[in-house]
Amino acid sequence: MGNPTQCSAEELLLHLQSAVEEVFQTMLNTMVTLVESGSGEASPRPALPAASEAQRVQFEAVVEFHGPRNGAVVLQCTAEGAMDIARGLLMLDAGTIVPLSELQDAIGECTNMVTGSLKTRALDPYGVFSLGVPKFGSGPQSRARRTGQLRFRMSEGCAAIEIWIEEPAAP
């Protein structure tokens, strides 16, 4: 039976998808193509749809949320996916090379906006939550488990967005 004081994993995933679409359409002027979605921790962590080894995950940003339930949104992308996101946010022409430091910042800000949108849609109705600042390469909280994932394609690259929820502390 679901907990009426919080969204189910399936509802969270739907809200996450809406948040991703909102951010990409509004801030990147880009439509994303959803490749796969899934809720629950049983499914293996997705390998991004990559054409070659060089396109595998190279960037990861994490934004944690804290409140009645703690968790995080994790954005992973290939180098080309990161380039797509940075070019979209900065409105740069296709083919423009964005420096590495700016790529990381762009991925962090994209994750920040998706998490904020998710918070407004799925968390705020159930209590007072706060967001952390983007972190890189640290992964989600140690007690968190993945409850949903979306994989999508952009113009040249790929990305995955996951939602992680922290297990309650043992009594």
């Binding site: 909102e22 906006m113 904020g116 407004t120 706060s130």
Partner: peptide, 25 residues
């Protein structure tokens, strides 16, 4: 801010912010 309508925005308004814009905008 990404904190559209959240407690942080309300606090900022009470402390003297003149308005807010939500990201994405």
């Amino acid at each position: 801010t990404t904190e559209g309508g959240g407690a942080m925005v309300n606090t900022a308004m009470e402390l003297g912010a003149n308005g807010y814009v939500c990201k994405p905008f």
